[in-house]
């Protein structure tokens, strides 16, 4: 219970963070508490809701099910790293704004990173694939239709 803390170096959104955490500390808690990146949200804390989804080496990962020590040396991307440095929104962020893809906004970072993992991959993006991928995250207020519409709109922009 009182295990020695370890130094872990994380690369998040291109920045280097050296944090001192217990080996059991989740990546999500570490991002929020030690890196002070609170855009990654925790909903269920057991891998069901997907609110904590981040990209690890480009792949969507539930940050509540991954330990910070497992993230050492990997490239981690959170919602804070989605827009360009000059503030230009990522096509997904713009599309969510344009298509009412959010209401309370709590699940939104998870959906954005989940969809970013898909749209930035080599996978062919069809409506069926979008529905299948988005089915792994939960939203309790917006309704999924406007979220899928947002991702389809962003996919269209990113194809051009």
């Amino acid at each position: 219970m009182n295990v020695a803390k370890r130094d872990v170096t994380l690369y998040v959104n291109g920045d280097r963070f050296t944090v001192t955490v217990e080996p059991r500390k989740s990546l999500a808690d570490t991002l929020r508490e030690d890196c002070h990146l609170t855009g990654t949200h925790l909903g269920c804390e057991h891998g069901v809701c997907g609110a904590c989804t981040v990209l690890v080496d480009g792949e969507p990962v539930r940050a509540c099910l991954m330990l910070a020590v497992q993230g050492a040396g990997h490239s981690i991307r959170t919602v804070e790293g989605l827009a360009a440095e000059d503030g230009t929104l990522h096509p997904l962020q713009q599309a969510f704004w344009d298509n009412h893809g959010l209401q309370c906004g709590f699940c939104t970072p998870g959906f954005l990173m989940l969809a970013a993992g898909l749209l930035e991959s080599d996978e062919p993006v069809t409506d069926e694939v979008i529905d299948h991928v988005l089915s792994s995250n939960l939203c309790r207020c917006t309704g999924y239709q406007s979220i899928t519409a947002s991702v389809r709109a962003a996919a269209e922009v990113m194809r051009q």
């Binding site: 609170t38 990654t40 959170t78 804070e80 962020q93 704004w97 906004g105 939104t108 954005l112």
Partner: peptide, 19 residues
């Protein structure tokens, strides 16, 4: 209408109670 509250929510800079 364009929602005025969306920008912080889309960029991870909103402040929820747990933040």
């Amino acid at each position: 209408l364009r929602r005025v509250e969306d920008l912080p929510l889309l960029t991870g800079t909103g402040r929820f109670a747990a933040d």
